[in-house]
Design a protein around this nucleic acid. Structure first.
Lengths: 159, 159
DNA sequence: GCAAATTCAATTGCGGACAATTAAATGTGA
DNA sequence: TCACATTTAATTGTCCGCAATTGAATTTGC
């Protein structure tokens, strides 16, 4: 059997690694889109897109913060956040005001409507949990693994 | 102690569920972006974006397929794929031709350059593996869990 | 065989994502 | 003090991602 004959049959490790089904990045990418699609009908009722929902989640934990702070918590930059925040402001869920102490900062604060929306949002996680068809314990374990992976990837970028 | 006093201290399950750090969807979302950022310098050398790379991975496995087929494998629709495929065609990595048997179909085939790019791409997965600072076994186990979650989410959408 | 339903890709419009650049405010060091 | 660097948000341009619509080709039911 000649070497070409062998090569034609043999799948090298590099060949296997290029298979879509073997790529964890594609698993993560396609799962993120699946989440987005499951969230959509739920968030439509709140008048939010999924990234806007994430911003609101962050603000419900702590508001009156500069754009930078939000960006660090969500891993997003001003190019993404500035237009998104302007849309939330147009929806009267937040206010954007220049800090008087440091005029470089734009502080993001929730309006009364923004705070109030939290009550309606409380039903969302339960629906997602149901759609995932998975126990809370399993999901949290998976989440911890994924976050650990994310943090290792981000650590490489910081070098 | 009055009930308001209790409420002020007590974090309900719904409150906990709204915390950003408790949300697996945010873990997946932010990890997808982290992957994207790690891939970027590697894919720049191939002249591909990350979604374009996924399309090429799919085509290296099987080409001469309709747009629909690609869409099903990648969970993307024609609104996303049509402009992306036109850019790959402009880069002379693929050809787009109407099927003569069924003129509704646009068949996507790799060019010689498209096939050749696969050799350069073989180095990519190894770099990603290194960045993930994780064994292949661990990554594949995680991948399987994430794919199972994705499939359950997509199953809900199909109902 | 033909009208109606279906399939498929393309298009349009909107909202992210991010790199690169800009401009203003602040901080720093001779 | 005053050049110089740094920090911050905004802007611009390019590329996804998807809902909704369009129009052409095909399949189906009668």
């Amino acid at each position: 059997m000649d070497s070409m004959g062998i090569m034609a049959r043999k799948q090298t490790a590099a060949d296997q690694a290029l298979r879509l089904d073997n790529q964890i990045c594609f698993a993560v990418y396609s799962t993120a889109h699946a989440f987005n699609r499951v969230y959509k009908p739920l968030l439509d009722r709140l008048g939010l897109t999924y990234p806007q929902y994430l911003v609101m989640l962050a603000l419900w934990e702590r508001d009156d913060v500069p754009v930078k702070d939000l960006g660090e918590r969500l891993f997003l930059d001003s190019g993404t956040l500035t237009p998104l925040l302007k849309r939330l402001e147009a929806a009267e869920l937040i206010r954007r005001t220049r800090s008087t102490e440091d005029e470089r900062l734009v502080l993001i604060a929730l309006t009364a409507q923004g705070h109030a929306l939290r009550e309606k949002a409380k039903a969302v996680p339960q629906s997602i949990l149901a759609a995932s068809a998975c126990s809370v314990g399993e999901l949290m374990a998976m989440k911890d693994e994924i976050v650990a992976l994310r943090d290792r990837l981000n650590a490489v970028l910081g070098e």
